[in-house]
Design a protein around this nucleic acid. Structure first.
Lengths: 346, 346
DNA sequence: TTGAAAGCGCTAACAG
DNA sequence: CTGTTAGCGCTTTCAA
């Protein structure tokens, strides 16, 4: 007597399977006495409707998918030294905050959230696998192979967080990276008189590219000396080495403008190890506004993204498209805010 | 030409649907040239297999479910005053850390995770809804109606985090609440000579009950004066009021032993508002070991639970049961560690 | 208001 | 190695 189905419930209640189905999906269409009998029979049997069968028959699942980073490949968060604690990922990072927004909005809209993550970033089958189970998919920029995403986007609405490649058939939710970078550079130059700025970061996603390009354009616009960006690569080692090199060569800029908070925290830590005063001798800025920036010493001047709202917005766009049966609305660009703190000299 | 199916792919590749199916599920059983043709046809068409159909036919979904708290009903985290910041849920809480462990282990095991949360805690249909879509379900203690859980547990393996009611047909993953509470009380009494201890917390879940009962038993065993627990209820107001009352009456205990870190942070904050020195005039202890305890002033002495491991263990138990087709192994009890910090006087 | 019956897209015997 | 053929459990016209 395993796994009772509509047939079992129907038999138990002395009705047809159609009535059982109606009893659950459109209770108002069933005579109330019949309804009661069906519900009673169902609970007596411990009936649990099959989501798969329902999804197949309906053609919709009322679930959204999130294809996330492969955590293990991610940096483990602010370095222990920088955060003063021994564990790995102590503070919530950008992706965690965004995911939280997604979870909340899904709950609000009555959708379940299916989280999938492949072991290797460009794994086509993993993303297709989660796509096959949901009515709409959210993915972080540049974690899925574009061809796989294209196939998925042809079937269900897709939203890429942090900017889709230009020309993509699906929209994105991103922030005003250029505006944020401009606010940082303007502040550094206008309020603190900095002129030699060095960028720390690397390309790899539309967001990172936008930040770097904007930084370069600003240097040019303002007639500041162009500088080679410190390529962060993956892991902290390269950044630390680059900082060491600057120190040994005696060539410290007025400020390190970092592409992310995590990088900025590494820079801060590398500088502290060498006893370099921040912001006295060099300023440091971040980008994202994760919690750890408020707890570092000095606190980190950064650009705060509305992370929870990014997630919520993506869900709203998806649900709107799904329920109206249309393509999702065009990409959204959310505003950012400069948060001045100790690391720039304020 | 919407949503290509196995039939479309089969036609495009000139084979039968069975071959298409095999090409995806058991590639080694298909001649490699045929396999190539099928895969090629599939990608040409942008084929995305239907998870619903697959789940229905296979009888398994390779997804696990997590029925979470309804976040909005939750306290919004350490109070802003206590954490010194303006936002709501700034720090990851117990449930967040556990969820993280679940996500990681699911990813490691190749399972997708389906997250569901009802608007009202005892909502039977919401949990049954997620249960119908997955091969195994994890839920936090006391968030789901026992009858609903029982029905679900009769179909798929279920694990309750934080202790199932005695006599439940499903296992739980919990921690050594008694041992943790004993460590706290022993430390307070033996290392700090405290004798008048007041408990802050309330019942409501097996874990909370275990902590309170142990506290009482310890008071009795050690011949300490029995005290009425401060019933925390929901929200901080009652706790704050209780603290006020103690202060106004001049009757401060030697220590407030709190059932959770969040409560302890509220107590800490209420005491600070009144200028009461902690630990000078009264000690305070928590339970859980969330991040915020390391950042409060003073830092909080607490009992650290292996939160990530709790989540991981639950997933492992579930997957083991699913893949071996047996009932899950019996409940697991994980160890805890006393973390002495500033709030007890150390 | 209820029932009969035709799928939804895929898997897995079982044949060939 | 590949094709035929039943289902898997539910929804949803269309009739009654």
């Amino acid at each position: 007597m395993r796994k009772p189905t509509v047939y079992d419930v129907a038999q138990e209640a002395g009705v047809s399977i159609a009535t059982v189905s109606f009893a659950f999906s459109k209770p108002e269409r069933v005579k109330s006495s019949t309804l009661a009998e069906v519900l009673d029979a169902a609970s007596r049997l411990g009936y649990v409707p099959s989501g798969s069968a329902r999804g197949l028959a309906r053609g919709r699942t009322r679930a959204l998918g999130l294809y996330a980073f492969d955590y293990l490949l991610e940096p483990s968060g602010p370095t222990p030294e920088a955060s003063g604690a021994a564990d790995g990922r102590l503070f919530p990072l950008y992706a965690d905050e965004v995911q939280r927004g997604i979870e909340l909005e899904c709950r609000d809209r009555g959708y379940a959230l299916m989280i999938g993550a492949g072991r290797d970033a460009q794994n086509t089958s993993a993303i297709v696998d989660v796509a096959g189970r949901v009515d709409g998919l959210i993915t972080f920029a540049s974690v899925a192979a574009p061809e796989a995403l294209a196939a998925v986007a042809a079937r269900i609405p897709v939203i890429e967080l942090g900017g889709a490649e230009p020309g993509s058939a699906w929209p994105s939710v991103e922030v005003d990276n250029a505006g944020g970078m401009r606010a940082v550079v303007d502040h550094l130059v206008d309020a603190h008189g900095a002129s030699r700025l060095e960028y720390v970061g690397s390309a790899g996603s539309p967001e990172m590219t936008a930040r770097l390009e904007t930084f370069r354009a600003l240097q040019a616009d303002r007639g500041l000396a162009a500088t080679d960006p410190v390529d962060a690569g993956s892991g902290d080692a390269r950044v630390r080495r680059a900082i060491e090199a600057r120190l040994d060569g005696g060539a410290l800029p007025d400020a390190f403008v970092c592409a992310t908070d995590q990088l900025a925290l590494v820079v801060l830590d590398a500088l502290r190890e060498r006893g370099v005063d921040v912001p006295g001798r060099v300023a440091v800025t971040g980008f994202d506004g994760i919690l750890a920036t408020r707890l570092s010493a000095p606190t980190l001047t950064t650009v705060r993204q509305p992370m929870e709202e990014i997630g919520r917005r993506a869900v709203r766009m998806l649900v709107g498209a799904i329920e109206r049966g249309v393509a999702p609305e065009p990409s959204a660009v959310l505003p950012v805010h400069l948060m001045v703190a100790g690391s720039c000299g304020c």
